[in-house]
Design a binder for these strands. Structure first.
Lengths: 144, 144
DNA sequence: GCACCATCGTTTGTACACCAACAAGTTCCG
DNA sequence: CGGAACTTGTTGGTGTACAAACGATGGTGC
């Protein structure tokens, strides 16, 4: 190995791959979230937030609105339900569906947490200047 | 509700939060990865790639190099070991450590997959122009 | 009507991801 | 030397995330 740079034949650099950096950025964000809002996971908060906005939704519809798999949203709703934050009842019009809605306590918690949640976006973007943040969000949106 | 825009008192918009967009971007990336490299998960590939670069590492050291928890890297190594892609032996100098190294087959697979892996970064960034990609990667790096 | 197909929710299985607690080994320091 | 502090790997538990298969229901077209 005469050279400084190893990387045998391929020259593949893990650190330069989007996926790897994306994953580390998310790790940092999740850690910020957990520190700011220990009451709920980011996923649970997203589901509760969307539900408070929609007032009411079927389980799968809520999953689509929050970019969650049917199997994933089920677990999330279950945990929110056990904690008394959302309520579930059969849909009269369509017997396949269950209608999910936030409870009064769920709304209260969301209202209390929303300011903190908005702050988390700022904290996550803290390493960037204001114009950089807008640029970053615009580009990220294109990738999502 | 006289207005079009609901969002009761808070005006919280899930779609504008970094965490949510970040998560969707990652989802898209993971789906591209799985389509391009069905043989391994992104995490497994990252571990194998780093191991091929380092030639050899302790389990925890490899975890740090790939931004994985000790508990996480254990499972990843286990699965790679079962598939004959990496090898594990006790470290003579430090009896706590296990030395992990890629097998010949692990190296072969990595060499075969590396070009595809590099392409995944391009595919993920496809919605962006060349200058946008550099800008995005630079900003993302700051957040990671 | 009725077969066909889509949708809804559920279950099972695999794979991260992280926390907390633990035992065994190593290092540091007085 | 000898004990405190740290590191290494392991385990158990919780929580996403997705694929695949399933039963039940709903809609569609003939």
């Amino acid at each position: 190995m005469p050279q400084d740079s190893l990387a045998p034949t391929t020259g593949y650099r893990l650190e330069e791959q989007v996926g790897f950096v994306l994953r580390r950025a998310q790790q940092r964000h999740l850690s910020i979230f957990a520190a700011s809002i220990p009451e709920l996971t980011p996923t649970q908060f997203a589901a509760l937030a969307k539900l408070c906005e929609l007032e009411q939704a079927s389980q799968n519809a809520l999953g689509r609105a929050t970019a969650m798999d049917a199997a994933t949203i089920k677990g999330v709703i279950d945990r929110l339900r056990v904690r008394g934050l959302v309520e579930v009842r059969p849909d009269a019009a369509d017997q396949r569906r269950v209608a999910v809605a936030p409870t009064a306590e769920g709304r209260r918690l969301f209202d209390a947490l929303a300011p903190r949640a908005r702050r988390i976006t700022d904290d996550t973007l803290a390493p960037l200047t204001a114009p950089e943040r807008h640029m970053f969000l615009a580009l990220l949106e294109k990738l999502a």
